[in-house]
């Protein structure tokens, strides 16, 4: 059974950024979903999907920090890579404390991004595999 490709969600209010990141991840062989707002993303959440979220912290209305809080409330452990164009130590601390697996400054380099996705999603894939095994072991 082939290992399914990683599905990465991109949440950013700016279309140009969304499009560019989608292209980059697709070029790296990942599946990509994009969302213009935090609420759209939260509504689309399904168990085990996506494998990783690239979350812009600065968005109108529901910003990245609010999304992180909401995920915590939902006990959703989808790995989050926070990205921001407004980099401050407070934002970094708040994001990581809020549950983000990684914190990256815009503009983000492809290697840094892919490596952050990989390490963030590694745990989740392992967990997914364990969960899948548990399901298959269950008669």
């Amino acid at each position: 059974m082939p290992i399914p490709r990683l599905l990465v969600a991109i949440v950013d209010d700016e279309e140009s950024v969304r499009t560019a990141l989608r292209r980059l991840l697709r070029s790296a062989g990942l599946d990509v979903q994009t969302f213009a707002t935090g609420s759209e993303f939260l509504e689309s959440l399904k168990p085990g999907r996506p494998d990783c979220v690239i979350l812009d912290l600065h968005m109108p209305q529901i910003n990245g920090f609010a999304v992180l809080s909401r995920l915590k409330e939902l006990h959703n452990e989808v790995p989050v890579v926070a990205i921001t164009g407004h980099d401050t130590p407070e934002a970094r601390e708040r994001a990581l404390a809020g549950g983000a697996k990684a914190y990256l400054r815009k503009p983000v380099d492809d290697k840094s991004l892919l490596s952050a996705i990989e390490s963030a999603s590694a745990g989740s894939r392992k967990a997914a595999r364990v969960k899948a095994k548990e399901r298959s072991d269950t008669p």
Partner: peptide, 23 residues
């Protein structure tokens, strides 16, 4: 900070697009 964000948004788009193109 806000102004940096304003500038970083298009820079992000440029960098990611360019790197995607390379790939």
């Amino acid at each position: 900070g806000s102004l940096a964000h304003e500038l970083n948004q298009p820079l992000t788009a440029i960098l990611s697009n360019a790197q995607a193109a390379q790939r």
